[in-house]
Design a protein around this nucleic acid. Structure first.
Lengths: 142, 142
DNA sequence: CAATCATTGCAACATTGTTGCGTTTATTTA
DNA sequence: TAAATAAACGCAACAATGTTGCAATGATTG
């Protein structure tokens, strides 16, 4: 992966800037997510980490939680009971939709789908955020 | 629950009409869902079943799967890794949105939110369906 | 370099859902 | 109505994903 060094430096920068401790694990995890177009699962992140840096499952979960707290990544709900994670680019720090392929389970962000900020809700209900997943077949599967 | 007999009969009717075997379990489960405004979890269904009819966990899952196959109920994805189920009224046999309270986890159907049938997707992608969850605080929690 | 406290790794646990298989039962058929 | 049949059921065991408590490690600061 020829982009690796650049991503690695970007990741380190972002983490340092967020005021937490800069650890190898966090850097590598964020690098993986920055290199990825799709939103990927915990397991997929594990598989993409170098052999030389196999983190404990719990550590990975906690690092992901921390990165999400710091708004460097975001979590996406799916129908298969597994969170998927994706690095926050400036483009989609705001609310955006996701697409999930019903055959291969690939999940991408649909950045150009602006979602309205509020919805008509029953009286007394208060809007916070929206989660929108479009399902169908991706280019490879259709 | 004074409506019980009526619901029970409705449920039995619907099941018989769907061409499967009419079992006590299916009738009671569907009755519970027909009586409920919200979309509820497997566990909540269990709790609402009469003491005299405690079904095995597996049986409940399989009955719910069957009911969903027959389009008598529908499954809703949530961010807490648990399916929620709701009886299909004529109003929302089509695609509709759901609201989930971020405090008490209550989940209701937003019937009056019509969702467009298709979305602009990348080239080669094929639309199938959409899942939309609005999150916020319900009337009781806000 | 030592002190400090955030981060990590391990073990154990929790929740939700699934599979295989022998038994029961709703329905059909004689 | 009784026997035959296949669909449902219940049990046990398993699988996947995620969480908690706690002792050990290591990044940062002075």
């Amino acid at each position: 992966m020829f982009m690796f060094n650049k991503l690695h430096r970007t990741a380190e920068e972002l983490i340092r800037h967020s005021g937490g401790r800069v650890t190898v694990g966090r850097i590598r995890i964020l690098s993986v997510l920055l290199a990825e177009q799709q939103a990927i699962t915990h397991r997929e992140i594990e598989q993409r980490l170098p052999q030389t840096l196999q983190l404990d499952r719990v550590t990975l979960y906690r690092a992901l939680e921390w990165l999400a707290d710091k708004n460097l990544i975001h979590k996406v709900t799916s129908d298969d009971r597994a969170w998927r994670y994706h690095a926050n680019r400036e483009l989609h720090t705001h609310q955006h939709a996701h697409f999930k392929c019903t055959r291969c389970a690939q999940m991408i962000c649909l950045d150009d789908l602006p979602i309205e900020r509020s919805w008509p809700l029953p009286a007394g209900y208060r809007f916070q955020e929206i989660e929108l997943t479009v399902k169908g077949l991706c280019a490879d599967c259709s």
